[in-house]
Design a protein around this nucleic acid. Structure first.
Lengths: 211, 211
DNA sequence: CAATGTCCGGACATGCCGTCTGTAACTCGC
DNA sequence: GCGAGTTACAGACGGCATGTCCGGACATTG
């Protein structure tokens, strides 16, 4: 009875997604209350979510698996948010850059706590590590491509080592988002965006925009 | 008998230092072998160091305490390594900046594994968090002061928000050191230093050095 | 009804933690 | 050398969290 099996699998996957969201909501709240992902036990999570620990292990191999199940979705969202950056061209202004960065921040920000948790867990969980790595690699590749194109088109400092600078700028963003954009009001957030924009602008574009 | 007590305390402190170094050597090796600090148990550490777990707890409250006992020393070393940067003046060249950064890297590099472990542990260990925080805050303060002085003296882009940019540039360094300078050969290391130098130079100094 | 899938409570072995024994050794001052 | 103080140890503890397993309760479906 293949149809039965198929249906079961579908509902299983759906249920997994449902649980995943429900559990991450709990985790997010706990993190916001000042705890760290590593310190939050599975027992704690399932208790707060009112499901049994057994059920948790039916759907997830462990905490990292739960995080991983969620990461791909959000990575895509963020990637879409950043994409404006890659469209910078010779005519683009510093305002355009700021807008692109702001949209990336806006995509990132609702999930800062869990993103930070993911990057933290990446240090000891191989599965999570692969995901964060792929996420960074993909964005680095995009930025690198953009930088090289910009150098060819003459609106990015041609003396820069494109690949290396791309890596540095994006890891800076990752770290900065987690460290500086947690628990900040909107004014502070705007200032942080300004600062990051200033660094990126000066690094990449300013040298070719001298008046 | 105060003299006895005093002597005991001295030897205790000395022994603590001795153990600390011995244990961190083990930890460093284990990390180099691909394990993560969080995952390394006290049992593991003491076994490899050929001391008993009991003895460990005589001298340290826990793993974090051991890391903390070591962090202050190394923070001072690194701070000394970076100090060349703050001496950049109106006449300083890009080469000077690179030299300063290289010396910071050289101070940092021998301890990258443990520094990374410290920053990682900071996420869940309040004691370690305080130390890493103070370390970053102190360097940020120095850089911030340098930027402001440079803006007054006219060799740093005056449009930059000094405090914010200082924070971003230094967290970028912290992250970059851990992510990009682990397990790299010397050629790769030089390239990373070049990239970081390029970003810092373009951000801070280049706008006022236009030819 | 019977089979299937879902959830649960309860229990298990395992591993690590931090603490607390008692014991053996070593180093002093006397 | 004797005894007091210190240091190291092995061994055991209670506690907590992990990941796994089972059996029973319940609803859904054929």
């Amino acid at each position: 009875m293949p149809s039965v099996t198929r249906k079961a699998q579908n509902s299983r996957a759906a249920r997994r997604d449902e649980l995943r969201n429900q559990l991450l909501e709990v985790v997010e709240r706990l993190i916001d209350e000042g705890e760290s992902f590593t310190e939050i036990s599975v027992e704690r999570i399932v208790a707060e979510a009112h499901i049994s620990r057994t059920t948790f292990y039916v759907y997830f191999a462990d905490k990292g698996d739960m995080l991983s199940a969620w990461f791909a979705d959000i990575a895509a969202e963020v990637a879409a948010g950043v994409s404006g950056w890659w469209e910078m061209g010779p005519q683009s202004t510093r305002e355009d850059l700021r807008t692109a960065i702001e949209s990336a921040v806006n995509a990132y920000r609702p999930h800062i706590a869990l993103m930070a948790a993911s990057f933290h867990a990446a240090a000891y969980d191989p599965t999570v590590h692969e995901l964060t790595d792929a996420f960074m690699a993909s964005n680095v590749a995009s930025l690198c491509k953009h930088v090289i194109a910009g150098q060819k088109a003459g609106f990015v400092d041609p003396s820069l080592p494109a690949a290396d600078v791309a890596v540095w700028l994006l890891w800076m963003a990752e770290r900065g988002f987690h460290v500086m954009m947690r628990d900040v009001d909107d004014a502070e957030l705007q200032r942080q965006i300004d600062a990051y924009t200033a660094i990126v602008w000066n690094t990449l574009y300013a040298p070719t925009h001298r008046t």
